[in-house]
């Protein structure tokens, strides 16, 4: 009798976990799919650079959720992002395919040679994250902290006055600033 009850309880528990697992894996409804896209998008570096061949990070996330893109298409995210995507999507890990682009060893951001800038605003229109300020016929400037290094501003510039330079903010500075003042500061 006891054995029977135990058996029934165990089997129903196993069944329940199986069902829960399936529901999660299938992502049956649209809401689940939207959540998945959101979670994937959260892992992407949001450079909106299009190196992945999609129009930005969210379109890539959507393609990943649909299974029509691979996890190794994001050079700015690098292997860390590829690994995180593999973990989230349950796919085998892969390193980034160099055909989508190779990132410089240090993070680079755009820099405008201001005397050469003619104030055409083309780069401002190209910048996906509003990191360039300036007005018509006035020189433009990159807000260094906001630049994601996507390089999208470089091709439209008619006078080639934009170049990529190493970013200056480093994590050690951030760490130094947030370091708690231990022991009677």
């Amino acid at each position: 009798m006891t054995a029977l009850i135990a058996f029934v309880v165990m089997m129903s528990l196993a069944g329940l976990s199986l069902l829960a697992n399936r529901a999660a894996a299938n992502g049956a409804d649209a809401a689940a799919r939207a959540r998945l896209i959101e979670r994937i998008n959260d892992l992407l570096p949001q450079t909106q650079c299009g190196r992945c061949t999609f129009a930005g990070c969210r379109p890539y996330a959507t393609a990943l959720a649909e299974g029509s893109a691979d996890i190794n298409q994001c050079p700015p995210g690098g292997d860390n992002t590829a690994e995180a995507l593999a973990k989230l999507l349950g796919r085998p890990p892969k390193s980034v395919d160099p055909q989508f682009g190779v990132m410089p060893p240090v993070p680079m951001i755009a820099w405008i040679d201001e005397p050469a800038c003619i104030g055409c605003t083309k780069c401002i229109q190209a910048c996906p994250v509003d990191a360039i300020v300036g007005a018509q016929r006035h020189m433009h400037t990159v807000i260094a902290a906001d630049c994601t290094g996507c390089e999208l501003c470089i091709p439209p510039c008619p006078v080639d006055c934009i170049e990529m330079r190493p970013a200056t903010t480093s994590a050690t500075e951030v760490l130094g600033a947030s370091r708690p003042h231990v022991l009677s500061g």
Binding site: G56, C57, P128, V129, D146, T148
Partner: peptide, 11 residues
């Protein structure tokens, strides 16, 4: 990335 995403979405 989160800040860039917000700016991108606003834009």
């Amino acid at each position: 990335a989160r800040a860039a995403r917000l700016r991108f979405e606003e834009r």
